[in-house]
């Protein structure tokens, strides 16, 4: 059975909510491209809060996850706008620059986003980024250390499956 319980795309209702709230841009040309340093730095900081380095595995940004996310926005307008709006919102909550915050302060903001109304911008941004970041990060073998997973399932399979 194919299924996935997460609806990570913005729904029409959610897009409309953002429009009506005045959050979604009406003048797109006024916006900076998502691959500009303004967004890349915020995105890196956010992703490294979600997936920091520890003793055995690297951080999200060390594996280039921020760039993969930015690459993914090129064919998805709503996603692109969500990233921009989310980064701006983070900066706004951080007195201008999320990247200047210490880790405990970043964590505090993310905890708030995680608990926010699921249709609000902070929650939509957080949930989508968490979902995408986990997929991209755990697609890389460097992230598998400590899991008992050393390689893709094929070509060797798991002949030790009973042990």
């Amino acid at each position: 059975m194919i299924r996935n319980p997460f609806n990570t795309k913005l729904t029409r209702r959610e897009l409309l909510t953002l429009f009506l709230a005045g959050i979604f841009p009406l003048n797109l040309r006024a916006f900076t491209p998502t691959d500009s340093p303004e967004y890349i730095l915020v995105l890196r900081a956010l992703l490294d809060t979600l997936i920091p380095a520890d003793d055995i595995t690297p951080s999200a940004s060390a594996l280039g996850i921020h760039q993969e996310i930015i690459d993914g926005t090129s064919s998805d307008f709503a996603y692109d706008q969500l990233i921009q709006l989310g980064c701006r919102w983070l900066n706004h909550q951080s007195n201008g620059d999320f990247t200047n915050l210490q880790m405990p302060q970043r964590i505090q903001i993310l905890q708030w986003m995680e608990q926010a109304d699921r249709h609000s911008l902070p929650a939509l941004f957080f949930n989508r980024l968490r979902y995408e970041a986990m997929a991209l990060y755990y697609s890389q073998p460097a992230s598998w250390k400590g899991l008992g997973l050393e390689r893709p399932p094929q070509p060797l399979g798991y002949m030790d499956y009973q042990s």
């Binding site: 997460f6 968490r130 979902y131």
Partner: peptide
């Protein structure tokens, strides 16, 4: 695989999530 575990059944994020 680890992606679906991380996305769907292991809550949280940060070092605790790892």
């Amino acid at each position: 695989g680890p992606i679906n575990y991380a996305q769907r059944i292991v809550p949280g994020w940060g070092t605790g999530h790892k």
